[in-house]
Amino acid sequence: MTATLEKSPAKAGPTARKRPGRRWTRWIPYAILALYALTGGIGPLLIDYNPVYTSLPDRLLAPGSPVSSGATAWLGTDGTGRDVLAQVVYGARTSVLIGLATVVVSCVVGVAIGTLAGYFRGWPDMILARGIDILLAFPAILLTIVIAGAFERSVLVVVVALSATAWISFARVTRGVALSIRERAWVDAARVLGVRPLAILWRHVVPFTAGPVVALATLEFALVVLAEAGLSFLGIGLPNSAVSWGQTIANGKQYLATAWWISAIPGVALSLLIITIGILGDQLTARYGRGHVR
């Protein structure tokens, strides 16, 4: 810690000079995310896509080829003649929606459990700690696979299966925040004034979790989107009627020798999204910290 303090005055010079240049590059991740949100939100309205449609003459066309309907398949077509661009666009919507739903569910569950355990300590905290130990004994993806595989394939099941492990980080971080906040003077004051414990939690503890929770939510979003794609790749995730990048990548695997674009392109879209969110998450974590309260 002292080393960092000693270092900071010396570092102030170059960082200060760099600022103007950094200012606009800082917005690149946001711009890319906005592009994905737009693609996922508006794209499906502009591009028509039917997941069960097959068109034999249009099978395995290279990117940029004209299709039988007269249009152009800018990103090529897959093994049953379906447009890859449309799959990328619809896949963006699926990924973003499932990612958001899972993050919201696991965030609400995690924050509730984490703050309760951290604030009340004692046996709720013990149960939480052991419960997390038990869940962490399974590799996250394995538990997700087993839960998702046990039920009929649907969007709801995928969200539940992903949330089953995603809430843990939220609970851990907010527990840490709650542990430190409960010792603060204003919490003591509220307690002495006779404010009900749940009201104290809601008004004086939960707001302080916002920073780290937002930072964590971005990183979790990336993990969840990756996990969903992985599940769908294994054929355990979404039903065939939904369009998922993972499914498209899996479908393209058997045509690798002749049609590389089916697997390659959705993977690029997925990777770019994850990298962007990762960078954004690191920025947010640096700013708000992990359970760090000023």
Binding site: A222, A229, G230, F233, I249, A250, S263, G267, L270, S271
Partner: peptide
């Protein structure tokens, strides 16, 4: 490396 989906990297 941390962001690329492993299954896709494998296929590539």
């Amino acid at each position: 490396l941390q962001s690329f989906p492993t299954f896709w990297v494998g296929i590539m």
